[in-house]
Computed example of a mutant assay.
Amino acid sequence: MTVNAEKSLNQETELLALREALNSRLDRLLPSGDERDRVSAAMREGTLAPGKRIRPLLLLLAAHDLGCDKHHPGLIDLACAVEMVHSASLILDDIPCMDNATLRRGRPTIHRQFGQDVAILAAVALLSNAFGIIASAEGLPADCRAQAVTALSSAVGLQGLVRGQYQDLSEGGERRSPTAIARTNDLKTSMLFDATLQMAALAASASPLVRQKLRCFAQDLGQAFQLLDDLADSHDGTGKDPHQDAGKSTLVALLGADVVHQRLRDHLSSADQHFAYVCNQGVATRHFMHSWFEQQLAAFG
């Protein structure tokens, strides 16, 4: 076995262990409820259904690369909080008055399983749980926990996911400029990546300069992630409904798949440079980012 192959195998083994730790901790943090507690059941289904866990893995890997102790007692809880927020956003994104999706992560969407009323309540409960988990995370000073709550609430609120979703609903069917589309993508996707990385930086006691560079990294990563999602929309086998973007003004519709492929790679290159600037020794985050996108592009490219 070559050195590179052995290193890749070790990295995959580490990622598998991190995913298992995340799933185990999420299982403990989510309410167990009983067979009559449909809200708790919807929360668990929406969060524990097999997913990529991109954001919580990114938080853990970035924190480790920035020098945070791998055994930091509250780090995995911060990662779980991010996953709960992401899961809540997916539940809301799928409901009939939004995208009216039928599939998510290869399963019927939460509103199709439990009803729209339970889906909305489950999403609200997940958001509430997430902020409570951050507020009580072990090993972080009170001011860091407060900053983490602020970062995540900004990503979710009117200057983040909420505004991005509203723009997508109200303007998505109109012809928009590439700049306008990118602005919506920032709000819908980059903002949560930014909050994820800011929490990693807080756990690692990173400097303001590092945190600013991580914002640039998150912006490029979010744009690349959304472009990949747009490219995948015409494919089956993604675990989601295909052709959800039909009739919407995406960059794929506006510029074509080839141009979007190049833009995606440009954003990945820029993201890599930003992270390398603040962390030229730790490579786990960068390897994770590149290998994940290459796997997806091979499937959908």
Rank of each mutant, 00 (worst) to 15 (best):
A88W: 14
D93P: 01
A130L: 08
L126G: 00
H86S: 05
H71S: 10
L92G: 03
A88E: 10
S153M: 10
I133R: 03
R145S: 01
S136N: 08
I95T: 12
V85H: 00
A151R: 03
V82D: 15
G132H: 13
A81C: 06
H71L: 08
V124Q: 05
P108D: 12
C68S: 07
L152V: 14
N129K: 08
D117M: 08
L126E: 04
E83A: 05
L152E: 07
V149R: 09
D93F: 00
A122I: 10
H86V: 00
T102M: 08
I120P: 01
G132W: 12
A155G: 07
L59K: 05
A79S: 11
K70E: 15
K70V: 14
R105Q: 11
V82A: 14
F114H: 09
A135Y: 02
D94N: 02
D65N: 03
S153Q: 06
L127W: 04
A101Q: 05
L59V: 07
S87E: 13
R104A: 02
H64P: 06
Q116F: 05
D65A: 03
S87L: 13
V156S: 11
L61C: 07
I120W: 00
G157Y: 10
S87Q: 10
D77F: 01
P96V: 12
I91W: 06
R145T: 09
A137S: 13
A125M: 06
G139E: 06
L158W: 04
R105P: 08
H64L: 07
G106F: 05
G106Q: 11
Q147Y: 09
I76Y: 00
S154Q: 14
L58F: 01
P73H: 06
A148K: 03
D65Q: 03
V124E: 06
H86I: 00
S128D: 15
G139Y: 00
C68W: 04
V124H: 04
C97L: 12
A148Q: 01
V82W: 11
G157P: 01
G115H: 08
